[in-house]
Nucleic acid binder design. Structure first.
Lengths: 226, 226
DNA sequence: GTTTTATCGGTATTTTTTTATTGATAAAAG
DNA sequence: CTTTTATCAATAAAAAAATACCGATAAAAC
């Protein structure tokens, strides 16, 4: 049961496959199987790439048939860790924090945000669709009692590192960071930062190139970016 | 002024450098210069990597001194296309749509969301901090008049492709997609999809590995992921 | 003024990732 | 029952990205 070595980039495509398979199941088009070819067409990826990605977590693929959709979904879920519910706590109940707190879609990834914390007294105690917002001072106590391992940071950049440190002190070991800073941490703690700036850069650059430099050169980076 | 060929992954680090430099300027620690070494330490990247990335968009680097922070920021902004304000329209004024619509932080990337559109009559006409939400039927007219080139999709997955098609029909050429589907489009249209699932997968997997398989093997993918 | 030190930027090397090629296999068609 | 077809998985080749190495240079130390 030794999992094949899977590359970072390959790993990051797995949730995309899963999402697609789930959509298929939801539509219930009674087809039980799907080929790597079909997946690659639907998602705009290379056929071989899809097959290689899938072969590293599954052995369901059969020539002329493809993969059993339901089974493959399960394998993906299991591999990605969606099967066991991940509970998380969130710090920073501002606009974004509240939006995440109330977002129901996380359930499908096995994530449940069980509580939020905020420094602002006005936010505290209020319920957002059944979720409680506690004063930040209670963080340690709460985490100790519940044993939560995942933390979500939605505070302004200035306070993000402090919150991060606090989380680590309290044995949180995976952090999802929405603040606009790179956080420092020991390397056994996984920090994953959401980065709007990167996305925006891709779009902005595309636009400004398209508008300004109307094909001065042959192969611009934009083209090379698939 | 022929820009060096810049790789996709290198490009995606540029906004991160810019963010860091801006933070430095904001703190105003009177240091006018910074070395690639210092940047790499702060961001946890390879020293050579930083230097290589920067050298492809700048010639400011001087031995023993480093880069002029302010000038380098400008070069980055210019290259990334933040200098010219990018106007955008948003379709789908649900929770996420409204959150983005009201987010002031976009200004620093040169993005301005000038209007939103929604199919739901109840949302229409309402102002959100000065922004208007129009009926979706007015989309074409609005875009033609203003000449906007960037579209943001924050509708549910089911309607995302339809919205995407509508945008393309109306000459939108860069699309920022927050819906959970991969959109099909001609390849001169840039579609950049935000993907929560990928982020969550990274975190979930880390957690479930950490909890379940307490070092069965030497080199897991988790370690290999930096 | 010479030596040392920090740092840059180019070239070379290694590693990682993607893409192409090929043989095997299971079902369908003849 | 043989041939064709769609597909998988393994290996090989190509491309892209990360890293290591090295000479050059500008400032600081001696």
């Amino acid at each position: 049961m030794t999992a094949k070595q899977i590359s970072k980039s390959s790993f990051q495509r797995l949730p995309i496959y899963l999402e697609y398979l789930r959509a298929l199941l939801a539509r219930d088009e009674k087809a039980a199987y799907i080929s790597a070819t079909a997946i690659s067409n639907a998602l705009g990826l290379g056929e071989v790439q899809v097959r290689k990605d899938l072969s590293s977590i599954s052995t369901l693929g059969k020539p002329k048939i493809g993969y059993n959709i339901a089974k493959l979904s399960h394998q993906l879920e299991k591999f990605l860790g969606y099967s066991n519910v991940n509970e998380a706590v969130l710090v920073g109940a501002g606009k974004l924090g509240k939006a995440l707190l109330n977002y129901r879609g996380f359930a499908q990834y096995g994530l449940r945000i069980i509580a939020a914390f905020d420094a602002d007294k006005n936010s505290i105690g209020k319920t957002q669709e059944g979720k409680f917002i506690y004063p930040i001072a209670d963080f340690g106590k709460f985490v100790k009692k519940t044993g939560v391992k995942m933390g979500i940071i939605t505070v302004p950049a200035e306070s993000a590192q402090a919150v991060c440190d606090m989380m680590i002190e309290n044995k949180i070991c995976a952090i999802w960071n929405f603040a606009n800073v790179s956080l420092k941490s020991p390397k056994d703690i996984l920090i994953h930062s959401e980065n709007m700036a990167v996305s925006l850069a891709v779009l902005s650059n595309h636009l400004s190139r398209q508008l300004n430099t109307v094909n001065k050169r042959r192969k611009t980076w934009t083209e090379s970016m698939k």
